[in-house]
Nucleic acid binder design. Structure first.
Lengths: 162, 162
DNA sequence: GTATATCCGGATAACTAATATCCGGATATA
DNA sequence: TATATCCGGATATTAGTTATCCGGATATAC
């Protein structure tokens, strides 16, 4: 079980966009350059984030993306689900209703005991992601990224926004 | 993010094997028939469970598999990790150290803030799986599977064990 | 003692999903 | 008016999942 790369990109992009003023906009090509990831593919993820209402897209020249809500109102789950989808990590194929021991399908409980447990774990994962926001990430930024790098990053963003 | 099919099979197989007496053994072909899944492929999963010490393999004619521990001592996480691996669902590619804002790699904190949060969610998922055992599943069996099906299942196992 | 049924690991094939790029249309700014 | 962007669809490439087969080892049934 592995999350796709675009999830990581989307989390980094939304974190960076949280630093952009409400009237600014960063084009997808610049976000790709900033993070060192393929531009054409990243564009797809940004479109997903836009459809989900997490970022706002600005068309036309000097357009781009900005955050659509306050950083404290965007959870990691919002971002992850926008890119990765909302389906459970476990997919029940109703094995219990197959094979020589099977009886009429309508006699079974609505959900298999194994699926039940797996769904519970999936929900625990989502609950934890729901518990962290972009604002939380921004706070940790100062201790996980060198001040020099933060300075270079803000300089790059200034350049793009001007 | 999706778990592979063999995970579901392994959970159903270990649950069934929990009903087998300590001196019995169910061949992989019979487990495949019982669950209506491809025999040659299921065999791989059972080998994984065997390597992980969750099931015990008996070679030779009238051989097969049995549980290696008491059902209460086998967590769902044990089974899932045996088949799916122990790697986190999130894989950090150190995006923060790339692009125009990067500085010398050794200046960064050991783990990225985003990865930190994602690892925490992954651990919450594992914690939940660690909290349920095969014994718990067996208890729920009576309410999720019709008595008729349970009877047919035990009859099938009796036939195999004799 | 021999034939049979099983586990085991490796090699291989088919299929599906993830990764990545490109293009034409729409939109809005310089 | 030309340019730079977002958007969605189509397509290609790569990697992972699903699935099968085979030969060797092991132990039971006859």
């Amino acid at each position: 079980m592995r999350l796709s790369e675009p999830v990581e990109w989307a989390l980094h992009c939304t974190t960076v966009l949280a630093l952009v003023p409400p009237d600014g906009a960063v084009p997808s090509s610049k976000l790709a350059e900033f993070h060192g990831v393929p531009a054409a593919y990243l564009a797809k993820s940004l479109q997903s984030l836009s459809r989900a209402g997490i970022v706002e897209s600005v068309a036309g020249r000097s357009g781009g993306y900005r955050l659509a809500k306050a950083p404290a109102d965007v959870t990691l789950l919002d971002v992850v689900e926008a890119v990765e989808g909302r389906e459970s990590s476990f997919h029940c194929t109703e094995i219990r209703k197959r094979g020589p021991a099977r009886v009429s399908p309508r006699l079974y409980s609505p959900v298999c005991a194994i699926a039940e447990a797996m769904y519970r774990a999936d929900e625990a994962w989502r609950a934890e992601l729901r518990n962290t926001t972009l604002a939380d990430l921004l706070q940790r930024l100062a201790t996980t990224i060198p001040t020099q790098a933060v300075a270079k990053g803000t300089a790059f963003l200034q350049e793009v926004l001007s």
